[in-house]
Design a binder for these strands. Structure first.
Lengths: 106, 106
DNA sequence: ATAAAATTTGGCAAACTTGCCAAACAGCCA
DNA sequence: TGGCTGTTTGGCAAGTTTGCCAAATTTTAT
């Protein structure tokens, strides 16, 4: 594969990779309902706040979320709401997988 | 997060994770144009055939592609063509990132 | 049977990811 | 100022992913 084509797929993969973690997917789903501060997300997920902060910085680095500081809180919001569209496709794959599995098991 | 909710996001993440590699993304893109044998994909990507085979088994394990053996070749095809929809969103994020970057650099 | 072509599997080292803790940093208020 | 709350960063150990090679497997052809 030529270097420029490869670079293109690497750039694309970086964005998808940012979504490829259960916690980050949960965060994206939650942000689709409106902005949330780090403290809210931390309470919901239940991991250490430093862990949540790092997940958020990965999403931000990919350009998927935006952050805004207000007072001593940081609010995150979806910068690319279209990522929400991934869910319906993913759900359809999961349903198809479940059906196939049921068929094989009998 | 409750165990069942967590399991749900893990299942979703597994599918997105399967797409989160440049080579696998290329393969999905290529398969959107029709089925391809492992040998075709290997030539296009230029990695070792065992590497391509492993990427394909990850995509298959996620339920994204299907395989069919014909003669001594194995043909892969998209089992979940909706994953192709990811690309337009990813491209829009990349464009937005590029614009933002240009703005910051001046 | 034997060989050749296509694909998968096992194994391994290098690189990357994850999630916790502790420490640093920033903003607010007494 | 000092302390408090909210967030980010550095560091690290454990786990995961990647991509190559060599070996095994499967199918076709001689």
């Amino acid at each position: 594969m030529e270097a420029d084509v490869k670079a293109r797929y690497e750039a694309r993969a970086k964005i998808i990779k940012a979504m490829s973690h259960p916690t980050r997917l949960f965060i994206v789903d939650e942000l689709s309902r409106g902005e949330r501060c780090v403290c809210d997300l931390t309470k919901m997920v239940g991991d250490d706040v430093s862990t949540i902060s790092k997940h958020l910085s990965i999403l931000k680095g990919a350009g998927i979320v935006a952050d805004e500081k207000r007072g001593n809180q940081v609010f995150y919001s979806l910068r690319a709401p279209c990522v929400t569209n991934f869910f319906s496709c993913v759900e359809s794959v999961l349903r198809k997988n479940a059906t196939e599995h049921a068929r094989l098991v009998g």
